[in-house]
Amino acid sequence: MDEGYFPAGRSLLRSVHDERVVGLFYGQRALAVGALDPRNFVGTIQSSAGRKAPFRRLQRTADAFETVFFGTREEADRMLARVDRMHERVSGELAHASGPYPAGTPYAAFDPELMLWTVAVTFDSAQTFYELFVRELSAAEREQLWQEYRRFGVLFGMPASTAPATYPEFRAWFDGRLAGDHMHLTPEARYTGRAIAFEIPMGRGREPAKRLHDAIMRGALPPRVRELYGLRWAAADARRFRAGVAVVRGGRRLAPRALTHGSCSISYAQTAAVERARLRDGRPTPQVPEPGAATGAPVG
């Protein structure tokens, strides 16, 4: 039987992403944190055909990841080949100086350092929301999850030698990188990251759910990331965050398993559909601006 690269019942990565409360949050956080590397931001967001519909792009990425998380090896391999073909077109140079990176700095989807950064922000976001909403992982489980994420990165073409060998090494590297001088937000990245984190398209009547979502997302960002985005963090925000986490944890425990586990593809598609409808009606959610465009800060 083709059980996929992450077999049910044996893969911790699969168990983590089988939790819908993880699937509904981790992608936005990963993109917001990932945008702190200007090469990553320009190489993914700006070169994407989804500039006018960033949540459609997020849906495509999340669906591709879920195919690898949950699919058979045959299904995963088809998706990996498709992503590989798309990545072949992603390369270039920074048009403008961005923090520590001068104009002309190259970027490419297959740059091992940038591939590691993408895996790192995805892993860190998945771990963060699992431990917030489900339970804290043991040291051994954190190690297992990181090793499976290393394999996940290798499936997409990341050289295994690029990634920290153990979870403690990863944590030291990642936390040090966030605190370092190489983290920089261009005006476009700051605008886009805030929009992706706090402007998720929801249907009418979902205002309470959006306020809950935004309170949790703000609190789940590392302090350094909130600082770079210019997001306030006061005692009232901390209280809202703790209350929001408690609501989600309690709801997860009370809801039937059929609602709390499995693919989030339907939810991703619904979000993209709301974005598409708003764009059609002339009420678009914040779009990724053109490089060099004047950008005000979206709400959040």
Rank of each mutant, 00 (worst) to 15 (best):
F6K: 06
P7H: 01
P7D: 06
A8M: 09
A8S: 10
G9Q: 08
R10G: 10
R10N: 07
R10P: 04
S11N: 00
S11H: 09
L12W: 13
L13S: 02
R14I: 07
V16K: 03
H17D: 04
H17W: 14
H17T: 06
H17M: 13
D18E: 13
D18S: 12
D18R: 15
E19M: 06
R20T: 02
V21R: 09
V22S: 08
V22T: 04
V22L: 11
G23E: 01
G23F: 09
G23R: 10
L24Y: 15
L24V: 07
F25V: 03
F25W: 05
F25M: 13
G27F: 12
R29V: 11
R29Y: 02
R29A: 13
A30K: 02
L31T: 10
L31K: 10
L31I: 02
A35C: 10
L36C: 04
L36Q: 08
D37A: 08
P38C: 11
P38S: 11
R39Y: 00
F41W: 03
T44W: 05
Q46G: 10
Q46Y: 03
Q46V: 14
S47Y: 00
S48E: 01
S48W: 06
G50Q: 11
G50W: 07
R51L: 01
A53H: 00
P54G: 02
P54R: 00
F55H: 10
F55R: 04
F55I: 00
F55L: 07
R57I: 06
R57V: 01
Q59P: 06
Q59H: 12
R60P: 01
R60L: 12
R60T: 02
T61S: 15
A62S: 09
A62W: 12
D63M: 13
D63A: 12
D63E: 14
A64N: 08
F65P: 03
E66Y: 09
T67P: 05
V68N: 04
V68A: 01
V68F: 10
V68I: 11
F70E: 01
G71N: 04
G71K: 08
G71R: 08
T72G: 04
R73D: 02
E74N: 03
E75C: 06
A76K: 05
D77Q: 04
D77I: 03
D77P: 00
D77E: 13
D77A: 02
D77T: 03
R78W: 08
M79E: 15
M79A: 14
M79V: 14
L80K: 09
L80Q: 05
L80N: 02
A81V: 01
A81D: 13
A81Y: 00
R82V: 03
R82S: 13
R82F: 14
R82W: 14
V83M: 12
V83K: 12
V83S: 10
D84H: 14
M86I: 13
E88I: 11
E88V: 14
R89W: 12
